[in-house]
Deep mutational scan, measured.
Amino acid sequence: QKPVSAYALFFRDTQAAIKGQNPNATFGEVSKIVASMWDSLGEEQKQVYKRKTEAAKKEYLKALAAYR
């Protein structure tokens, strides 16, 4: 399975908490809140997710090379 983006990892980590705080929110509303949070996130915090994405990408490429 291809690795997901840094934003997708952040979304996955954040979505449940947002939904818990806003139980009646639609998926679209939750998405807007998470997107706003991502935009206001500091670069250092974004780097945490970007590093996770890079590590997953390297593992994916290694597994793909081994498969071929």
Rank of each mutant, 00 (worst) to 15 (best):
L9W: 07
F27K: 15
F11S: 06
R68E: 15
E59R: 08
L61S: 15
A56H: 03
A35N: 06
M37S: 06
V48D: 07
E29Q: 02
M37V: 05
P3M: 05
A63R: 14
E59K: 12
A55F: 07
E29C: 02
K52H: 06
N22D: 04
P23C: 02
K46Y: 02
L9H: 04
F11C: 05
T14C: 01
Y67M: 15
T14H: 03
R68D: 15
S40R: 12
A66H: 14
R68N: 15
K52A: 04
L64Q: 15
V30L: 09
A66D: 15
S31F: 02
K19L: 08
Q15N: 07
K50S: 07
K62E: 12
K52M: 04
L41V: 05
A16P: 13
T14L: 05
K50R: 13
K58D: 12
L64E: 15
V34R: 00
T26W: 01
K57R: 08
I33M: 14
P3G: 13
I18V: 12
Q47F: 03
Q15W: 07
A16G: 07
V30K: 01
Q15Y: 15
K46G: 01
A55W: 05
T14G: 01
R51F: 06
Y67I: 12
D39K: 12
V4G: 12
G42P: 09
Q1N: 15
Q21R: 13
G20A: 14
V4Y: 06
A6F: 02
R51Y: 07
Q47V: 11
Y67W: 08
G42Y: 03
S36H: 10
R51W: 10
Y7L: 02
A65T: 14
R51P: 06
G20Y: 04
R12C: 03
K19S: 09
A35I: 09
K62I: 02
S40P: 00
K52V: 02
A16H: 10
K46Q: 10
T26P: 05
Y7T: 01
F10V: 00
K58L: 08
K58H: 06
V48A: 11
R68A: 10
F27R: 13
A56M: 10
Q45C: 03
E54R: 07
S36N: 11
Q1H: 14
R51Q: 11
Q1S: 04
K2H: 12
E59N: 06
S31D: 09
Q45Y: 04
L41A: 06
Y7I: 03
R68L: 09
P23Q: 06
K32S: 09
